[in-house]
Design a binder for these strands. Structure first.
Lengths: 178, 178
DNA sequence: TGATGTGGTGAATGGTGTTCAGCTAACCAG
DNA sequence: CTGGTTAGCTGAACACCATTCACCACATCA
């Protein structure tokens, strides 16, 4: 029944961050990042807490935006999207303006990043077939300011996962020692 | 409890695919990709089915691998991972051998793709700070066969989402007409 | 036409999410 | 040192939801 509060996702670094995430939080996050269908009782058994305690923490992690959302990860090829590519876009003079939002609206686009280096924008796009790619690139070129693109077609994906919680102690420099 | 069966992800188009995914399946998938905490009764109300019917379909979609898993999407900066980058790796003579698996074991690495174009491998990596990036690149260079790398530091992310179900009818060319 | 299988429904049930009152320990002010 | 306040955990209670089941409708096919 969780409401969709996705507007606070990665736009703001999340305002109401009061608690600095202790080791138990990280364990819970790590487990939920792997499989969010596990019961609170189950998680509690693993980290040494009661079910309501785990529930309380997860609720807080959601509210503070540490858990952006919980989603089903779909298999591209099963949905007819056999074609994955990264597209580097070189555009003139729009930092985070209209053009970026326009790209984000295209259903093929999964990621849009502004980057340093020999390009300005990196897009991750997934679609049916190479022909669809051609049409997609035309649409990109139609956008004002787009100078050039470079496409990297993915031949095989060997790893594709979300943000890792990272339970290694050296990652957090003052959390669980209290 | 889901094991990491990422090696069968888009290498095979998934074996036990019997059903060709009708429009209702896509609606359900689209909804679950947005928010997998919604109840079956709720989903059923949206697509016009009873709760057990939706449950049956979701169970099948899981079994056939269309739903790879359901996971909590974490917020990098809240976990101390403020630094995101794409690394292009040029390596000599290993297609999908040991080196790729070695990279996938590094906790900073979120994605590994073999691509066409002026590079061989694209890595998506997330870590604490630029200093960590330096150490990471050293480890990459230590791997046998690595010739060169090119790093694109992400300045801002404007979109980051999973595979879209794509309910637009023209995407599937012969699915729901039976 | 009758057998078979697929996929749906509504009702029943067991498990899980969720709430609540109370307990404990830490912290702070007096 | 002591009393008040707060944060966070626990076990019990409750409501809701996932899951199962028997039954049914419809399409397919011998």
């Amino acid at each position: 029944m969780t409401k969709r509060n996705e507007e606070t996702d990665n736009l703001q670094p999340n305002r109401p961050r009061a608690k600095p995430l202790d080791a138990l939080d990280r364990k819970i996050l790590s487990a939920l990042a792997e499989d969010s269908t596990r019961s609170y009782a189950d998680l509690g058994r693993e980290v040494g807490l009661s079910a309501p305690a785990v529930h309380e923490r997860v609720k807080r992690l959601r509210a503070t935006g540490v858990i952006k959302r919980t989603s089903a990860d779909l298999h591209g090829p099963s949905l007819g999207k056999d074609f994955l590519a990264f597209v580097h876009v070189e555009a003139a003079g729009w930092g985070k303006t209209e053009g970026v939002m326009e790209m984000a609206r295209l259903p093929e686009v999964e990621e849009v990043h502004a980057v340093t280096g020999d390009t300005g924008l990196i897009l991750k796009v997934r679609m049916d077939c190479p022909e669809a790619m051609e049409g997609f690139l035309w649409r990109i070129y139609d956008m004002p300011g787009v100078r050039s693109t470079r496409t990297y077609v993915v031949l095989s994906t060997h790893l594709e996962r979300g943000v890792q919680a990272g339970i290694t102690p050296e990652l957090s420099q003052g959390d669980n020692l209290k």
